[in-house]
Design a protein around this nucleic acid. Structure first.
Length: 274
DNA sequence: CCCCTATCCTGAGGGC
DNA sequence: TGCCCTCAGGATAGGG
């Protein structure tokens, strides 16, 4: 479950290794992970292309190529994107291997195959719905926008469901939604429209705080997450609620409760979060 | 229209 | 020790 901080860490790691590199060869492709175009088209399009830009939008990675096409990668639950020496054997479930002009390989791996790869002009990919409409960037200037405030004010859904809605806030996933709610002392199951203005402000202010801290720690390390070099992150130990159901709240010592909210495992403090 | 649930997929971890 | 069952979840499709 790479979320914004994990994807951002990967992009920062990989960017200097990819920009200015040419794709020499597609060493391997598993067509199952390809959303667009077909395998034949990708195999004929990629070789020879120069990487000219690499950015993150929400949880999506965009590698811009000199033809005007973009290689778009979503890591799903268990995806990783790394650079590796070409002679290093690829791990199982490696679905895409691109040999670069520098000699190293860009490798996309995803055991659970929830992630997807696509290639095309961004306008086309948006038209196809491969790249969906995304909401505000939590680390962008002007966050939270009036639109995000309004989305929370209007919705009867649990506040956590709104935080997870990529069309409202891009890049927030299960871990950081729980962490932000804890920091803001707001129970994740509260209907968003029932939050006071003060609570709404606290929740939205907490998001960039927990995400910046996670980026500082190079992403949360658990299960399949790896940074751009295949190493684990170190933010797991810093999580205050996620994965800590049944143990003590760091703020008041009460036993943290685990429940399902918005279809997701959710951990919160009954005493601190009203 | 809005919200919830099932679905995809594999590996980790718990229970017996 | 080993096997089997359950669970984890991002995004999407479909149902109520």
């Amino acid at each position: 479950m790479p979320e914004l901080p994990e994807v951002e860490t990967i992009v920062r790691d990989l960017r200097p290794h990819l920009l200015g590199q040419r794709i020499a060869q597609v060493v391997h492709l598993n067509p199952q992970v390809l959303r667009h175009p077909g395998p034949a088209e990708l195999l004929s399009s990629l070789p020879g292309q120069l990487a000219v830009g690499m950015t993150r939008r929400g949880k999506f990675i965009h590698l811009r190529l000199d033809s005007g096409q973009t290689l778009v990668v979503h890591l799903g639950m268990s995806g990783s994107l790394i650079v590796a020496a070409a002679d290093l054997p690829a791990l199982p479930h490696t679905h895409l291997r691109l040999r670069l002009s520098s000699g190293v390989e860009l490798r996309y791996r995803d055991p659970r195959r929830f992630g997807r790869v696509a290639l095309g002009e961004e306008v086309v990919l948006r038209g196809l719905g491969v790249v969906p409409v995304l909401g505000d960037e939590p680390l962008g200037r002007g966050f939270p926008s009036p639109g995000v405030h309004a989305a929370l004010r209007r919705s009867a859904r649990p506040v956590k469901a709104v935080l997870l809605d990529q069309a409202v806030i891009a890049g927030c996933g299960n871990i950081y939604a729980d962490e932000a709610c804890f920091l803001a002392r707001v129970r994740p199951s509260r209907p968003a429209l029932r939050l006071s203005a003060r609570e709404r402000t606290r929740v939205l202010a907490a998001l960039p705080i927990v995400m910046r801290e996670a980026i500082r720690r190079r992403g949360t390390s658990f299960s399949d997450y790896r940074d751009g070099f295949g190493a684990k992150g170190e933010a797991f130990e810093a999580l205050l609620v996620y994965g800590r159901g049944g143990s003590g709240c760091v703020r008041c010592g009460s036993t943290l409760r685990q429940a399902t909210v918005a279809g997701r495992t959710t951990v919160f403090c009954v005493r601190c979060q009203q």
